[in-house]
Design a protein around this nucleic acid. Structure first.
Lengths: 157, 157
DNA sequence: ATCAATGCAAATAATTTGCAAAAAG
DNA sequence: CTTTTTGCAAATTATTTGCATTGAT
């Protein structure tokens, strides 16, 4: 999947804040810098650490207060991988319908998109009287390569 | 979807316990009675309440210690609906590949199965070098009926 | 008898919140 | 100036765990 346009995403957040009469602060700058600097899933704790490298004054509370804003704005998506903490996926901003394969052998996570699956989801959901707003599909899988070599090296896409 | 065969599921759990040198107890009886008495998703707290109606001696700790056993045995599946507690779905035992539509208007949850989606999942996952072990698909949707009448009345299936 | 299972109460850990001080618009 | 935002520390809450005792096999 192509790299995100960081400047555009930042602009989207600023407009979101403005529209809600919220304010841009140094801490929020540090946080979105960190968010747009990765394409990996991350935790609140990781985001705190990254943000503090940009601006030491960022507190844990501010990170936890900013995450829902980023989520509501559509720049992040909360993910549950069965752990006791949430993960956040920064790739939904540009690819709102992507899916995940979680390799149970090496814990690698691969993302993919499928129009055919989207179409089927739409069709079935409509038939049941609903209209799709969003979807999340997680496939837990094993990896033949891992069994042979001890690691998964396949790339996504 | 057809009703589950409660006797068979109970038997499956007992065999699972035996195989692991674990023991059947009065409390576990009360818990699985309660689990197989519903087709709805439930929380640990609800299960405690139901189990205590069967056997007052059931403690919260025992419920929390039994839930992972039922999950490992394949009789329950942990679900995350974005709340701060887990839900458990008793329908995976008989329908291991079913999916969920969550109505964001009325919070109703509808289950459905689709062989076509399963096939696509298999195909894509194989192409990427993996083998599907399990999958979970959640569709968040809106409901036209709700907008007109203030409630969703559609039934699943 | 032996070892797993229990209830209880205390511990854990991610997230949330109250509040007084600081900063944005 | 007014209102939002912040950091801090304390609170919250689902879940887990240590331990002495009970119960299944």
């Amino acid at each position: 999947m192509p790299r995100p346009d960081r400047q555009r995403l930042r602009q989207r957040f600023i407009e979101f804040l403005t529209k809600k009469d919220l304010r841009m602060t140094a801490q929020r700058h540090a946080i979105i810098d960190s968010v747009f600097n990765t394409e990996e899933h991350f935790t609140a704790d990781q985001l705190l650490e990254w943000s503090r490298r940009v601006d030491k004054s960022v507190s844990r509370a501010t990170v936890y207060r900013t995450l829902p804003l980023l989520t509501e704005c559509g720049l992040l998506r909360e993910m549950d991988f069965g752990k006791d903490h949430k993960f956040y996926d920064p790739n939904y901003a540009e690819h709102p319908n992507h899916n995940h394969i979680i390799c149970q052998d090496c814990e690698r996570i691969v993302e993919f998109e499928s129009e055919k699956i989207e179409e089927l989801e739409d069709e079935i959901t409509n038939r049941l009287g609903f209209k799709v707003k969003s979807q999340r599909l997680q496939i837990t899988a094993s990896c033949e390569e891992f069994k042979r070599k001890g690691a998964c090296t396949k790339k996504q896409g």
